[in-house]
């Protein structure tokens, strides 16, 4: 099929970016969205132009490296899928597709569609772990965990850290990302000891990174490729209140 692409091009954070239009032919309906970008890039290179920079790695929806806004939607139109899992059969001959980077104050742009998401790492570094050094663990079956809690922990732990939640939020908030980790560890007995310190430290870091606040739009969960439920935010807020009260 033939497509019209409008792609955000920007050499680096210090220069002005703009949309550039491309016509792309011979796109197979069986190719993935990123393979469609590969095809464009092959043609740009052949024509002596610079290819479009975009992040990707696993191309199977689990590493969280890919992520672009497609016609206004983070990761595109398919619910529960990352951009790398989206396939071109979702589009038809002659469609126009606009492709932009994540836009958020806390995710500075590096080049074209590539942004810097290291703020996410720093939120985890602030406290998103259980402090257990190698070698000091008891037998794995020493602490039974109700299946329900283990399942809820897994639901939250499924986050791939792609940043779509931030990109979709009108406030550029990282609440869903942060709350997913708080909820994952908070469901488990192993996570109880540091529960209050953890949530306080992570939220502090989140604010320091320049992410916006949550005003309950719910866009984050709607675009989440792993369908992390909005409930985790409520849980985090409750933990946060307890953390403040227990000071």
């Amino acid at each position: 099929m033939k497509l019209k692409l409008r792609i955000w091009r920007q050499a680096n954070a210090d220069t002005q970016g703009r949309f550039q239009d491309y016509n792309l032919d011979h796109v197979s309906a069986d190719s993935s969205f990123l393979e469609m970008l590969d095809l464009l890039n092959e043609q740009l290179i052949q024509a002596g132009e610079e290819p479009v920079a975009f992040d990707h790695d696993c191309r199977e929806g689990i590493c969280g490296m890919c992520g672009v806004v497609i016609n206004g939607l983070a990761h595109g139109p398919a619910r529960g899928l990352t951009a790398c899992q989206l396939h071109m059969r979702h589009y038809k001959e002659g469609d126009t597709i606009t492709i932009e980077p994540w836009r958020a104050a806390a995710f500075p742009l590096i080049k074209d569609l590539v942004v810097d998401r290291s703020a996410f790492d720093r939120i985890i570094q602030a406290g998103g772990y259980v402090s257990v050094s190698t070698g000091s663990a008891p037998d794995a079956n020493a602490i039974p965990i109700p299946k329900k809690n283990a399942d809820l922990a897994m639901d939250a732990a499924a986050c791939i850290g792609c940043g779509a939640c931030v990109a979709a939020c009108p406030n550029g908030s990282a609440m869903l990302f942060t709350a997913a980790k708080v909820s994952h560890l908070g469901q488990l007995p192993q996570g109880q000891v540091e529960r209050h310190n953890r949530v306080a430290a992570m939220v502090r870091q989140m604010d320091a990174e320049g992410f916006g606040g949550c005003t309950n739009h719910g866009e984050c969960s709607a675009v989440c490729p792993k369908l992390i439920p909005l409930d985790v935010i409520g849980q985090m807020n409750r933990d946060l209140i307890r953390a403040v009260l227990s000071r």
């Binding site: 772990y129 259980v130 257990v132 190698t134 070698g135 000091s136 663990a137 008891p138 037998d139 794995a140 079956n141 602490i143 039974p144 965990i145 109700p146 299946k147 283990a150 399942d151 922990a153 897994m154 732990a157 994952h184 560890l185 488990l188 192993q190 996570g191």
Partner: peptide, 22 residues
């Protein structure tokens, strides 16, 4: 065996049975 112990202590949500064991 120590790997599984370590990972559980870190909060890795391995699949569990209804009795709560792995």
């Amino acid at each position: 065996n120590a790997i599984i112990d370590q990972c559980v202590a870190q909060g890795v949500p391995f699949a569990r049975e209804y009795g709560g064991l792995l």
